[in-house]
C-alpha cells in the first residue's frame, strides 16, 4: 500500500492517538459529554494540529537543525504551539466571527492537549517530509475527533440509562473508553 494510505488509515484507526496510544486523554474525557461540543472541539483541534504539524516541521529543519539547537525541541515546539493557538484565536475573531463563536471556547484548551505536541514530535521521529507530516497531523486529529464523537455519543445515550450513581462521571467514562479501545483493537496489524 502507498505511504499516503498507510498514514491516513494508520493515524485514524490503527494507531489512533487516543484509543491506541493514550494521548489527549484529558480533553477526551473532559469535553465528551455532548456530541455537539465534541464536534466543535474536534474541529478546533484538527485545525490547530494541521497547522502546527506544518510549522513545527519547518522549525525543526530550518531553525533548530542548522543552529544545532535540537535539544531545545520541546521548548521550541510548545512555544510554537502556544503562539499558534493565540494567533489562530485572534485571526478567527477578526476573519470569521461565526466560526470563532463555534470554536472559541475550545481554542485556549488546545495548548495543553498533548496530542498536538505528540504529533509534532512523532512527525520528526518518523522522518516524514513536509507534506506527509501535515497529512499525518490532519489525520491524527481526525482520529482524535472520531474517538471523541464516539465517546460523546455513548455518554449522551448513557444519560438516559439507569447507571449506578457511583459510575456516573469519570469512572463510567473511563470504563466506556476501555471498552471502546477493545473495539479499536480489531484493526491491529492492518498496515
Amino acid at each position: 500500500m502507498s505511504t499516503w494510505l498507510v498514514i491516513i488509515i494508520g493515524q485514524i484507526l490503527v494507531n489512533n492517538y487516543v484509543m491506541c496510544q493514550f494521548f489527549g486523554i484529558c480533553p477526551f474525557l473532559g469535553v465528551s459529554k455532548k456530541v455537539d461540543t465534541a464536534l466543535g472541539m474536534g474541529l478546533a483541534v484538527t485545525f490547530v494540529i494541521t497547522i502546527a504539524s506544518f510549522v513545527t516541521w519547518l522549525v525543526q529543519y530550518y531553525i533548530l537543525e542548522p543552529l544545532n539547537l535540537v535539544y531545545l525541541q520541546t521548548i521550541a515546539f510548545i512555544l510554537v504551539i502556544a503562539v499558534l493557538v493565540q494567533v489562530v484565536e485572534s485571526a478567527l475573531k477578526k476573519l470569521s466571527p461565526s466560526l470563532y463563536q463555534a470554536l472559541g471556547v475550545y481554542l485556549p484548551l488546545i495548548t495543553t492537549n498533548c496530542v498536538v505536541l505528540a504529533v509534532a514530535v512523532n512527525n520528526i521521529t518518523d522522518g516524514y517530509n513536509l507534506l506527509q507530516a501535515t497529512l499525518c497531523g490532519c489525520c491524527s486529529a481526525l482520529g482524535f475527533t472520531l474517538a471523541l464523537l464516539i465517546l460523546a455519543g455513548i455518554r449522551e445515550r448513557m444519560e438516559l440509562s439507569n447507571m449506578p450513581k457511583w459510575m456516573q462521571g469519570f469512572p463510567g467514562a473511563l470504563i466506556m473508553s476501555g471498552l471502546m479501545a477493545i473495539a479499536f483493537m480489531g484493526f491491529g496489524g492492518l498496515i
Binding site: M19, C20, Q21, F22, W166, M167, F170, P171, G172, A173, L174, I175, S177, G178, L179, A181, I182, F184, M185
Partner: peptide, 22 residues
C-alpha cells in the same frame, strides 16, 4: 495480556476510581 494494553489501563483506572469514591 489485555492489562498491558490500552483497554486494561482505562478499565483498571475506572474501577480504582470507583473504589476510591466508595
Amino acid at each position: 495480556a489485555i492489562m498491558n494494553q490500552v483497554p486494561g489501563g482505562f478499565i483498571t483506572l475506572g474501577l480504582m476510581m470507583i473504589l476510591v469514591n466508595v
